[in-house]
Simulated scan of single mutants.
Amino acid sequence: MPGGRLTQQDRQRIAAGLADGLSYAEIARRLDRSASTISREIGRNGGPGDYRPQHAQRATARRARRGRPAPARAARPPGGGPMEEEIIQLAVRSGMSRMTARVHVDLLLSEDGRRTAAELTRRLGVSPASVSVAVNFLVQHGFVRRERDPRRRRDVYVVDDEAWYHSIEVSARQTLQVAQAAMAAAETLGPDEPAGRRLSKGGRFLERVVLDMQDSADRWRALLG
Results as ranks from 00 to 15, higher is better:
125 G>Q: 05
126 V>Y: 02
126 V>A: 06
126 V>S: 04
126 V>K: 03
129 A>G: 14
130 S>A: 15
130 S>F: 03
131 V>D: 07
132 S>E: 13
132 S>I: 03
132 S>W: 11
133 V>G: 05
133 V>R: 12
134 A>K: 01
135 V>C: 02
135 V>R: 00
136 N>G: 13
136 N>C: 09
137 F>G: 05
137 F>V: 10
137 F>R: 08
138 L>A: 01
138 L>R: 00
138 L>E: 01
139 V>P: 05
140 Q>V: 02
140 Q>E: 14
140 Q>C: 04
141 H>V: 08
142 G>H: 02
142 G>K: 00
143 F>A: 08
143 F>E: 08
143 F>T: 01
144 V>L: 07
145 R>L: 08
145 R>P: 03
145 R>K: 11
145 R>I: 07
146 R>W: 08
146 R>A: 12
147 E>W: 08
147 E>H: 10
147 E>N: 10
147 E>C: 08
148 R>D: 07
149 D>G: 10
150 P>Q: 11
151 R>C: 05
151 R>F: 11
151 R>D: 14
152 R>G: 02
152 R>D: 11
152 R>C: 05
153 R>N: 12
153 R>F: 05
153 R>Q: 11
153 R>A: 07
153 R>Y: 06
154 R>I: 15
154 R>Q: 15
154 R>S: 11
156 V>N: 07
156 V>T: 08
158 V>T: 08
158 V>Q: 06
159 V>G: 03
160 D>W: 00
161 D>V: 04
161 D>W: 04
162 E>V: 04
164 W>G: 09
165 Y>E: 06
166 H>T: 12
166 H>C: 07
166 H>F: 11
167 S>D: 06
167 S>W: 04
168 I>A: 14
168 I>P: 05
169 E>Y: 10
170 V>D: 03
172 A>I: 01
173 R>C: 00
174 Q>K: 09
175 T>D: 14
176 L>M: 11
176 L>F: 04
177 Q>R: 15
179 A>V: 00
180 Q>P: 01
181 A>D: 15
184 A>F: 10
185 A>P: 00
186 A>R: 02
186 A>F: 02
187 E>R: 03
187 E>Q: 06
188 T>Q: 13
188 T>I: 13
191 P>G: 13
191 P>Q: 13
191 P>R: 15
192 D>L: 14
192 D>A: 15
192 D>S: 14
193 E>W: 11
193 E>K: 15
193 E>N: 12
193 E>D: 15
194 P>A: 09
196 G>T: 01
196 G>Q: 00
197 R>S: 11
197 R>G: 05
